[in-house]
Design a protein around this nucleic acid. Structure first.
Lengths: 253, 253
DNA sequence: CGGGGATTTGACACATATCAAGAGCGGTGG
DNA sequence: CCACCGCTCTTGATATGTGTCAAATCCCCG
């Protein structure tokens, strides 16, 4: 079985400097279109690169930041995979999102000066550090950048509303189907197979995201496989019948 | 029984011009601290007032905007009460929020140029219209305003994560308790009784927000009343025992 | 190569949904 | 001012989806 999934660190710059210091070249980054506005010229890019002057590596299982940490930077994922979670006073844990290269982390900290979520790497990862004070002031000088930031925040709100829809109005199988189709689309956009990928999170983490128990998630995987929609082998998933998955969502019971 | 609830239009400027044209004076608005950054001087306020040059009235049941409408403005609620909802392709309806004076509507449209949600007035309401292009450019000249907007967007994300927590990890009674305590706090902040208020939404709308069926919501109200935590009379709610409500949330089963 | 976490699966419990009926309330028009 | 109508709400009986508990297997990581 041929499985194409994200390599551990597919986007690392070859010959980059040692861990504590990296060459940062947004201009040559193939994720540029995901974390920067379109149509920046060379001069703009150089100014952005002055803001993005460090990278940071986060090992699998480590936190990029924790809820309550003082907010100072937003992070652009360069390689790897993250989950963000919030834990309330009573210990309930909710996974608020899974994040892949080109996406931003830490936006939840802007409003209060402290991060509200934990961001944990699900595999060895690398992020670009964007000191927020610099981003903000650069935004004032570069309208396109400012507009882009507002846009990213707004789209995050729209995404969250989608998750609210999922959690509030969908049945378990619809939630998992939505989740898989969403992953598929995002992998696809990044040049990876939309039908064949590696889940970086556990069944429990999927459950904590979808509002389900891990046993339910496991059963659903088994059922989807039995019904010929998926091939599941541990964390490798192959979507065999996209149409059937999508049809699941259309079935208004 | 004495019930203090929001009057129909508590904040209307006495002697305001007719519906199509209002005096707009942010400087005299007692909601200023809710929708504007602190510490603006007189000159700044006048500039803001140039942007907020119209108001709009929305009757109970009418939509301020619908999903798919072209995005051009953000709205600050001056009086009244709104719900925002999203409907997916299959007709599932999710209430994404209830909004009261001082809160902003339409932020979800910034990212894509079209609103993603419907905003419907739950009682006769009035909003300040903030043309987004003007807000954006004024933000570049007034850092405090720009920072405030980012802050509002970020806090909306945090709020949404709270709702995800509610929908994904709480049981029905915890959801309703959380909802009531949240309303209580927001009424309180606006100078109204935190224990005694009028629900402007139906049981069904509460259910569509909390991911529950209207019957479940109704039963919960009855039970909370039977247990001496609430007094419920139609849409009037009186919180008799806040501690008990909060204790409900602490009960990790 | 060993061990502990992750996954699967089964049996059963329970919270919430569904279906149904009736009551209450508010608005409208005669 | 009263009666009617429609919508909202309440409550009961029952169904069902998902959670809980438990045990066995798997397999990945150190």
């Amino acid at each position: 079985m041929q499985v194409s999934s994200l390599p551990k660190t597919p986007l690392r710059v070859v010959g980059a400097a040692p861990a504590s210091k990296f060459e940062v070249k947004c201009s040559g980054c193939n994720l540029r279109e995901l974390c920067l506005p379109k149509g920046l010229d060379e001069a703009d890019l150089r100014r952005v690169e002055c803001v993005v002057y460090t990278r940071r590596r986060v090992k699998r299982g480590e936190a990029l930041f924790d809820a309550g940490d003082e907010f100072h930077s937003v992070y652009a994922i360069r390689s790897g995979f993250f989950k963000t979670t919030t834990i309330d006073d009573e210990g309930r844990e909710q996974v608020t999102g899974f994040n892949m290269p080109g996406e931003l982390l830490g936006l939840d900290g802007i409003g209060s000066g402290a991060y509200h979520a934990n961001a944990v790497a699900l595999e060895d990862s690398e992020v670009c550090v964007l000191p927020y004070a610099l981003v903000e002031s650069l935004g004032r000088e570069m309208p396109a950048l400012q507009r882009h930031l507002f846009s990213v925040l707004s789209r995050e709100i729209v995404r969250d509303h989608g998750v609210m829809m999922l959690l509030g109005s969908m049945r378990a199988e619809e939630r998992l189907a939505t989740f898989l189709l969403n992953l598929s689309r995002r992998f696809s956009r990044r040049g990876y197979s939309p039908t064949d990928f590696h889940l970086r999170m556990t069944r429990e983490e999927i459950g904590d995201y979808l509002g389900l128990k891990l046993e339910t998630v496991s059963r659903l995987f088994s059922r989807f496989e039995a019904e010929g929609m998926l091939e599941v082998e541990q964390k490798h998933v192959r979507i065999v019948d996209v149409d059937a998955l999508e049809a699941l969502l259309r079935t208004r019971n």
